[in-house]
Amino acid sequence: MAEAPDAATAWRWLLERKPGTRGFHDGETLFALVAAAHARPRLRALYPFPTHGTLKFLRSGPPFDGGDRDMPYVITAGPPYKVCTVHGGALGGGATLEEAVSLVVAHLPADL
């Protein structure tokens, strides 16, 4: 599976559903979530990383260093759509994808 080299390319490939790339075969919920997240400039600056029923947001693209454990992510099963971090666990949920995205933005680390 091809990994996008940078955040802008990762977003573009997700929005285009580029075959052979991460997330291209996932369901409609992921693509609606990607569109909602892409509309937010703070999230658009991050590397979108769909994996195992989640949409994660990483500080940088490959190679991945695992230093994003404090970053919030959305679990795509829902509604409600849960927002979590690896370190902090559940942060809350949203009845809509837009609410979940707002919760992600509200819990982004201050150093971004």
Rank of each mutant, 00 (worst) to 15 (best):
F24R: 05
L43Q: 08
V101F: 02
G67T: 03
L108S: 02
G27L: 13
P62V: 03
P62A: 11
H52M: 12
D70A: 14
A7Q: 09
V86D: 09
E98R: 12
M71A: 13
P79I: 13
P62F: 02
E16G: 02
F31W: 06
L103M: 06
P5E: 11
G78V: 05
A35Y: 07
P80Y: 04
W13Q: 05
L46W: 03
A10N: 02
V34Q: 03
H25T: 04
A37H: 01
A37G: 05
K82M: 10
T85G: 10
P79S: 14
F24L: 02
G66I: 02
P19H: 05
Y47H: 07
A100F: 08
A37T: 09
A2P: 04
R42H: 03
W13M: 02
P48G: 06
G94A: 15
T21M: 11
G20Q: 07
T85W: 13
E3R: 14
R44G: 00
L43S: 06
T76F: 04
R59S: 15
F49P: 04
E16Y: 03
L103C: 04
H87I: 11
R44N: 05
T9E: 10
A90G: 08
W11C: 10
L30I: 07
W11S: 07
E3K: 13
V101S: 01
L97Q: 01
A4G: 07
P50Y: 08
P48N: 02
G93V: 04
L108N: 01
K18E: 10
L97M: 08
G23M: 00
K56Y: 01
R40P: 05
R12T: 02
H87E: 14
Y47P: 08
L30R: 06
A37L: 13
G27P: 03
L58G: 02
K18N: 05
G23E: 00
W13A: 07
M71S: 14
